[in-house]
Each structure stands twice: as C-alpha cells, then as structure tokens.
Simulated assay, not measured.
Amino acid sequence: MSFRLRGLPAEPFAELFTLSDEALAARRATRVVADREHGYPCRISLTDAEPGQSLILLNYEHQPADSPFRASQAIYIREGERQYDEIDAVPDQLRRRLLSVRGFDHRGMLRDADVAQGTALEPLIERLFEDNAIAYLHIHMARPGCYAARVDRA
C-alpha cells in the first residue's frame, strides 16, 4: 500500500523568523541554537539541524480535531526549509529514531497505535492502514513524545 508522508508547510511559520525574542516569547516560542547532532529535528523538512544552526521552538497544534484527542506539542522549525512531501519514502530523521505511530479516524478519534524503530516504519504504516476506518496517521518521536509528521494513503 502506498503512503504519503509529509512534514509541516513552511508558510504558516515564516513570520516567526522576523520577530524579536520578546515577540516570540509573547507567542510562547523561543529561538534556539542546535548544540549537538540529531537533537533538533525540523518538522518542516524532516531533517535534523546541524550544530550551530538556529531554530525556533514553539508549541504547535498538530491534532486540531474536535475530539478528546485534540493535541499540541513543542516542535522545532528551521528557517528556509521546504516541506517534506514524499510518496513511499521515509526521511533519515525518522529512520534513526524510535517512533510512536497513531491512527485516527475521520472524526479525529484514536483507532490504533503502536511503537516501532524508524527502520521498521513501513510495515507498521501498512498494518495500521489495513483498518479502513483509519483516515490518517500521526508519527511522534517516541521518547520525547513530540509530533513529527503526518501520513495519508497515497
């Protein structure tokens, strides 16, 4: 079964990079500088920031469904990135992590969830999408729990 894996679109975040630190703080966001490899995953490009690169850390509502599963979480975004949007491909950022994958129906209700190493993501996506009631999947970084990407049937 084919799947479409997407990061977040860049456009809604573009203004944040023009704001002062005080204006970012008023939006519960902050500028950070990556101080190690693979510790600052950009949710737009689904790539990891290199040490020394600047990012913005903010709270993002990744599950806006009008259901008990409505949710938001802290995410990192990097300026100048292009949205990851690929069919049947998994970026290296996800391959190297333990992931939690959650399947939601069209009302935003959780139907199923599981955990897998990123190297075993495709079989989990296929298994979850065997349930025709699952409309989309959310991938989270399992250890910190933060939102990573969305998966739809292609």
Rank of each mutant, 00 (worst) to 15 (best):
R4N: 14
E11H: 12
E11Y: 09
E11P: 01
E15Y: 11
E15V: 08
E15Q: 12
D21V: 06
D21K: 14
E22Y: 09
L24N: 06
A25P: 07
R27H: 06
R28I: 09
T30P: 01
T30L: 10
A34D: 03
D35I: 10
E37I: 07
E37L: 10
G39F: 01
Y40S: 09
P41Y: 00
C42M: 07
R43W: 05
R43E: 04
S45L: 06
A49H: 04
E50R: 15
P51S: 06
S54V: 14
L57M: 13
L57N: 14
L57V: 04
L58M: 15
N59I: 09
N59E: 12
Y60I: 06
Y60N: 09
Q63W: 03
P64G: 12
D66F: 11
P68K: 13
F69T: 06
F69Q: 12
R70Q: 12
R70I: 01
Y76M: 08
E79W: 02
Q83R: 15
Q83L: 01
Q83V: 01
I87H: 02
D88C: 01
A89F: 04
Q93F: 12
Q93E: 12
Q93M: 13
L94D: 00
L98W: 14
S100H: 13
V101F: 00
V101N: 03
R102L: 04
G103L: 01
R107G: 10
G108D: 08
G108I: 04
L110C: 11
L110A: 11
R111L: 12
A113I: 03
A113T: 10
D114P: 04
A116Q: 10
G118H: 11
A120V: 10
E122H: 09
P123L: 02
P123S: 05
P123D: 06
L124I: 15
I125V: 15
I125T: 06
I125E: 06
E126Y: 07
R127C: 06
R127T: 13
R127W: 08
F129E: 05
H138T: 05
I139H: 00
H140A: 09
H140D: 07
M141D: 14
M141N: 12
M141K: 08
G145A: 06
C146W: 02
C146D: 12
Y147A: 03
A148M: 07
R150K: 14
V151Y: 03
V151L: 04
R153V: 11
